[in-house]
Amino acid sequence: MDKVGLVLGIIVVAIIAVFAAINVSYALDLIFFIAFYAIASLSLNLEYGYTGLSNFGKVGFIAVGAYIAGVLSAAFNVPFPLCVLAAAVAAAAVGAFVGIPTVKLREDYLGMATIIIGEMIRILLRNTPTNSVWGGVFGLRGIKPPFAFIKDPLARQFAYVGLSVFLFGLVYWLIERWGNSPLGRVLKAIRDDELAAKSVGKFTYRYKLLSLTLGSAIAGIAGALYAFYFLYLNPDTFIPLITFMIWVMVIIGGMANNAGVVLGTAIVILINRITQIAKDYIKLPLEPNYFQAMLVGLLIILFLMFRPQGLVPEKPVNTPSWEVLEKAEEEGRAKPPGGEEQ
């Protein structure tokens, strides 16, 4: 990580540490939120940052994951790991369903299709019968906590947050490995110039579809984590604004840079939390929640305009191939020709 990232990262960790010193439960909650959103924003980073896909319906995929996991747990007593798996598979299926017709078209179509799917899912969930397990507008209740055998609530929360952080670490590792492999190069090539990528023999359709499907699966996992944390789901929490919060995290952090995206996630969440606390002390002639959403919009625009690479810019794909280049350079093979160029 470079300097800006390092400094900001230290500040973020310090703030979390201060929260932890004041109130452990609050800090755990904060850490859970960062882990949850980080998984979601990493999945968007895979889709947008690496592959250049415009998924504007991320919240829909999270909702699918959350509800599938929630229903399986509440109605069928399915154990937690299976619920998470089912959530990933269900979200992936929705992702593939949207992706199959759209990723071969212009980027606009995918953008419109995903945003519509996201809203469709919310409306569907709102209109489920209220007397069924889905709960309609009243929400889904009765999700079984995975660590019910731990009696102390703080310890239970600690265990669950720890598990979430572990899952986040797994997702981070996986996407980092994908990104720093020949696959990462192909995805970035598709993002930078799809026609050129095709012209060097990359089956771009397959890659884009897989990227969207796997990204959706990861979003589904995030959704399942959400469901088992709150043990209650309401369709109206899955509004499009969540999607764009996740977009801001990726854009601020730096596309195709996983560490940057996690940093961006932490910053956005901390700003959110700190304004929530500050609003009790500072009276502004503004409604803070609406103001935050305005800020989300403004940040998107400003970052795209003045720092499109984000706080932590992307790095070259790190594979063993660089050793070969280094050796060649040491052997003096990389001499500029005669000085006439440049």
Binding site: P182, K188, A189, D193, A197, S199, L210, P316, V317
Partner: peptide, 27 residues
């Protein structure tokens, strides 16, 4: 048509055929 956010070296590497590291499963 360059892959403009990538280095020249990566641009050339990307064009190789049959790299098993280009799959989601093996990479």
């Amino acid at each position: 048509r360059m892959f403009k956010a990538m280095t020249v070296f990566e641009n050339v590497l990307t064009a190789a055929k049959g790299n098993p590291g280009e799959r989601f499963s093996t990479s």
